[in-house]
């Protein structure tokens, strides 16, 4: 899917632009944000420790070695998901909100408890989707939940701002009809796209070496994430990497 990859990239992108940013792993029991961020060997305390009052937030936050403005709050690998209580999550987010400009919450898959906790207090939500019918349906479902099960919805406040990020996009496969196109996805979900991230080997290389792919400024995926952060902050940037890489006149003609 690409949620954790995206959380890491957006958090790093925001922090690189000088915004104090924390990124939190809500995937209790399956933590891997710390791997992708390359800080797995510096984990002492985790999110659940903070919720349970076994550590304070400053003890648990891990400062990124590459960027001073970025901190990671890892998930617990051992606790069960119910440890994330609504009150507990709320307290931690409120505490972080005092000193951070952005808090990025990396949601687990599905629409179960962990995902609900990750979105419940959100102001903005980035729904990550792949160009496949089943993934787009799931995203549609998630958008419905965002608009009815968040704190903003319960309190009748302005709705969560919705952003759509399409990832693992492969123009060749779109041309062959094996994948939905950007326009199909936009049409089905009736949302504009924050970014289109191409399918890229750079992503796997980046996660294997613990470097958020946005730092790989040579790569197409890194550049696409960089653009997405810019758009999120209000820049008007055209989408890149939507076309098949130049392979000569004929293939471009076929790619439409």
């Amino acid at each position: 899917m690409g949620k954790t990859t995206t959380s890491a990239a957006l958090a790093m992108g925001l922090a690189q632009r000088g915004h104090r940013t924390a990124v939190i792993d809500f995937d209790v029991g399956l933590r891997n944000l710390d791997l992708i961020m390359g800080c797995e060997r510096r984990v002492v305390y985790d999110f659940v420790n903070v919720i349970n009052g076994e550590a304070n937030i400053n003890q648990a936050l891990i400062r990124d070695k590459r960027c001073d403005a970025l901190y990671v709050l890892p998930a617990s690998q051992t606790r069960d998901k119910e440890a994330l209580t609504k009150d507990g999550v709320g307290r931690v987010l409120e505490e972080l909100g005092k000193t951070f400009d952005y808090i990025v919450c990396d949601s687990p898959a599905g629409i179960e408890h962990g995902a609900h906790m990750a979105m419940y207090y959100a102001d903005d939500a980035v729904v990550v989707t792949n160009p496949e019918v089943s993934s787009v349906r799931d995203s549609d479902r998630m958008l419905g939940i965002l608009s009815s099960k968040s704190r903003r919805a319960e309190r009748n406040e302005a709705p969560i701002r919705e952003y759509l990020l399409l990832t693992r996009y492969a123009p060749e496969r779109v041309a062959k009809g094996e994948m939905l196109s950007v326009n199909d996805v936009r049409e089905i979900l009736s949302l504009d796209l924050l970014g289109v991230i191409p399918e890229s080997k750079a992503v796997l290389n980046a996660s294997n070496s613990g470097v958020p792919v946005i730092l790989d400024t040579e790569s197409d995926a890194g550049q696409a994430y960089h653009d997405a952060v810019g758009r999120y902050l209000g820049e008007d940037l055209p989408h890149r990497f939507l076309e098949i890489k130049k392979k000569g006149f004929f293939s471009r003609l076929m790619g439409g």
Partner: peptide
């Protein structure tokens, strides 16, 4: 009986903190 909150389109820029519209 899923509740659909009575809200307006997201097209307007929403000033935050937002006023409580309906209720």
């Amino acid at each position: 009986v899923r509740r659909t909150p009575p809200r307006e389109a997201a097209s307007q820029p929403d000033p935050r903190p937002a006023p409580r519209p309906a209720a």
